[in-house]
Design a protein around this nucleic acid. Structure first.
Length: 270
DNA sequence: AATCGCGCCTGACGGC
DNA sequence: TGCCGTCAGGCGCGAT
């Protein structure tokens, strides 16, 4: 499931294939994604050069002079750059055809992903407007998290996964960052001090940075634009390791916190 | 205002 | 072997 490191890996992978290329056609074989793929995309995009391939939170932004394609990969979405005449397989829902005979192909078996089109500033789009800071920017500080967590009784894990607080952290990296910071995922967000929030921000940045360097985490179906898996799975310290020993000698536990499977070491995390 | 629970969807997996 | 029920999981939305 693509979280921030996986989306950043995809962005980096597709960027050289798109930058400066012109869109020659858009083929929508299955418009029923999380929201319907807008009609008239081909008319809007044909002839447009791709000026930039950007990312905001877990959204990919394909920026053209006429507007921006906003893409979310949901749980199972992937992007490949293929020869445009490659026969589409099951769940290959959308092709953006390029003027070099290739196409950017969106596959999404579970169809939790989405594709939006806006002619306005994408930052003002409904889906992006209310998002919190990027975790890898200096904009995110421990003092901010501390301030915004006051009075919150929900778990720090739920707090971290709230995209209005900070974006890009999903189920895997929430467990990993909290382990790295030595904070128990079930602790109420409002009962953690400023020092520990500063440590948490450092942990988030360390974990996400390392995951990006490794090309993301492949659990089952994540692949990069060229089809290779990511290699961060073997570097995961707690996620998916219930019952295995932590470095401290204790056993890693699994529990449902914030409605999701959560992994932690009860000895290292308080 | 914060929090919770739902629903979208398919493939994998386990039990019988 | 094959069928079927269950679950995972991002995230917006409505209910509380």
């Amino acid at each position: 499931m693509p979280e921030l490191p996986e989306v950043e890996t995809i962005r980096h992978g597709i960027e050289p294939h798109l930058l400066g290329r012109t869109i020659t056609d858009v083929a929508v074989r299955e418009p029923r994604l999380r929201w319907p793929v807008p009609a008239g995309l081909s008319e809007a995009l044909t002839g447009q050069p791709v000026e930039a391939v950007a990312r905001r939170a877990k959204y990919l932004l394909l920026i053209t002079p006429a507007g921006t394609v906003i893409l979310h990969l949901g749980m199972s979405g992937s992007l490949r750059v293929v020869a445009a005449d490659t026969p589409p397989q099951a769940h290959d829902h959308v092709d953006l055809c390029l003027n070099d005979g290739r196409a950017l192909r969106l596959r999404d078996p579970r169809r939790f992903g989405s594709l939006h089109w806006t002619r306005e500033d994408p930052g003002q789009h409904q889906l992006l407007r209310e998002l919190g800071p990027e975790p890898l920017d200096d904009a995110l500080t421990g003092d901010d998290l501390y301030r915004r967590s006051r009075g919150r009784r929900a778990s720090v894990k739920a707090f971290l996964m709230d995209s209005r607080i900070v974006v890009g952290i999903g189920n895997i990296y929430a467990s990993e960052a909290l382990f790295e910071a030595g904070i128990h995922p079930g602790r109420a967000a409002g009962r953690i001090g400023p020092q520990r929030y500063r440590r948490l921000v450092t942990a988030i940045q360390t974990v996400l940075g390392r995951a990006i360097e490794a090309g993301g985490t492949t659990l089952r179906d994540f692949t990069r634009a060229d089809g290779r898996p990511g290699f961060f799975r073997q570097a995961l310290r707690v996620y998916g390791r219930a019952g295995q020993p932590c470095a401290c000698g204790g056993a890693i536990r699994q529990r449902v916190i914030a409605q999701r499977a959560t992994y932690f070491c009860p000895r290292c995390q308080r």
